[in-house]
């Protein structure tokens, strides 16, 4: 197992290195003139050139890449040419918000999707199955931003139960910063009111984000459960008189979950890169908006930084999934 982990970790290095080269090249080879734009409407050509020089953009691309890599080793992601803020500071500010949202959404998707998928398989062609099918179809076809708006309308405007957007009431001071996850920080500070408030802000965006992974996980779980239920050993267990509850929860679900795990890993990366619409609607100060703005203005360093971070997280999410296969299925461990 240790060998397996080490080998996977070593393989991550060239993947990330390739990612930096690729992203750097793409970001820099695009047409457009972000420097002229950043220098402002009143800059003269000489000022624009000086501005570019300040950021080292007059040097050959390969030298710039070298400088970027050596900076990266020291945790320096470069500086935004628009705001002049170090990218690492922005990542520190925005990434926790996005991660909190993605984790909450994945939590919902898994916590509801897996039992619902199991239930749909267990009561196949009965009403739980039909219900799950309708829910799955609805959630996969419903655009996230539209659902977000509907949720806002219902829970914030009509019922007034939940806040319209944001992470925390702006007139209140949030709990002391430890992890950057407001929910966790509130728990660490033992401030349960703050925790409840942070959760209320998290609910709607998390639901909006979670629906399509939820539907996929549910359908995937149903399909693999049905497949496993056809296996001979399930029949044997029934013949041995084991209770259905035991068969389903202990033997069937464990075997059925492997395939679903792959989907979960993929969705994690997909959600990380796809938060922008939900973030816009709920004013969630996260990475998606930051990245989108950087892309539209061709602000190189933030674009590269965000891509690298999401890429790295994606790689590690899949690494974690690989490890989980081993935990769930002893056969994988020994292979």
């Amino acid at each position: 197992m240790l060998h397996f982990i080490l080998r996977r970790l070593v393989l991550i290095v060239p993947v990330l290195f390739g990612l930096t080269a690729l992203v750097f090249a793409i970001a820099r080879l695009l047409p457009g003139d972000p420097v002229a734009l950043a220098a402002g409407p009143n800059a003269t050509p000489a000022e624009i050139a000086a501005y570019g020089k300040e950021f080292g953009l007059d040097r050959p691309l390969i030298v710039q890449y070298g400088a970027y890599l050596s900076g990266l080793m020291k945790g320096d992601f470069g500086v935004s040419i628009y705001t002049r803020r170090p990218v690492i500071e922005d990542l520190r500010a925005y990434l926790p918000a996005t991660l909190e949202l993605v984790f909450a959404a994945m939590f919902l998707a898994i916590a509801i999707g897996i039992p619902a998928g199991l239930a749909a398989a267990a009561w196949r062609d009965k009403w739980p199955d039909y219900l799950s099918r309708v829910v799955a179809l609805g959630s996969i076809s419903m655009p996230r931003f539209f659902l977000g708006l509907l949720l806002q309308l219902l829970f914030a405007m009509w019922l007034g139960w939940l806040p319209l957007g944001g992470r925390f009431p702006i007139t209140e001071d949030p709990p002391a910063l430890v992890t950057g996850f407001l929910t966790l920080d509130a728990l660490i500070a033992r401030d349960f009111t703050a925790f409840s408030i942070a959760c209320q802000h998290l609910v709607m965006p998390a639901i909006a984000m979670s629906l399509s992974p939820l539907a996929t996980i549910m359908r995937m779980m149903r399909a693999s459960t049905l497949e496993v239920m056809q296996q001979d050993y399930v029949l044997t267990e029934r013949a041995l008189g084991l209770s259905s509850r035991l068969i389903m929860l202990k033997y069937v679900s464990r075997n059925a979950i492997s395939a679903t795990l792959t989907v979960i890993g993929l969705y994690f990366g997909w959600l990380l890169g796809g938060t922008v619409l939900v973030e816009t609607i709920f004013d969630w100060p996260g990475l998606g908006l930051y990245a989108t703005k950087a892309v539209v203005t061709q602000d190189f360093m933030p674009v590269i930084g965000v891509t690298l971070v999401i890429g790295t997280l994606f790689v590690f999410a899949n690494f974690a999934v690989d490890l989980l296969y081993g935990v769930i299925n002893p056969k994988v461990r020994t292979e």
Binding site: L162, P169, Q200, S243
Partner: peptide, 30 residues
């Protein structure tokens, strides 16, 4: 196979409903 009724549907739905209710606490916090 028809799944026998020893996992009660009502228990299952009840649990699902409770978890949904738990995340939508009404409280004006703004």
């Amino acid at each position: 196979k028809k799944f026998p009724k020893d996992i009660s549907r009502r228990a299952f739905l009840g649990a699902a409903g409770a978890s949904l209710a738990a995340v939508t606490l009404p409280e004006a916090a703004f």
